[in-house]
């Protein structure tokens, strides 16, 4: 079975995100005072060939811990959906 996994990596709460701050500044200047905070991150998409969704999730979690996110500064979320053919 093929799965499309997504790992979203962002800076941990409490760590200053200058890119996010710069984007927020620009949005405020464009007239969006509603924007309270902006956090930038990375969106990493992985196509997996594994037998089950559970296995996909556990693999993604392991890869995120080992490489995709730096545990000192970053946090991550993983999600999985079924995927039949690669784009």
């Amino acid at each position: 079975m093929k799965y499309k996994g997504t790992v979203v990596v962002t800076l941990k709460d409490g760590i200053f995100d200058p890119q996010g701050a710069a984007v927020r500044g620009s949005l405020l200047a464009l007239g969006y005072p509603q924007v309270v905070d902006v956090r930038m991150g990375k969106n990493i998409v992985l196509y997996l060939d594994v037998p089950s969704k559970e296995e996909a999730l556990s693999l993604l979690d392991e890869m995120a811990r080992r490489l995709l996110a730096n545990p000192v500064t970053e946090t991550y979320m993983v999600s999985v959906e079924e995927w039949c053919s690669r784009p």
């Binding site: 200053f16 730096n70 500064t73």
Partner: peptide, 16 residues
């Protein structure tokens, strides 16, 4: 730092 031989991590420069 990434290898864990020293503690901490690097972030992008605050001036971007």
């Amino acid at each position: 730092l990434e290898a864990g031989l020293l503690p901490g991590a690097m972030l992008p420069n605050d001036n971007l």
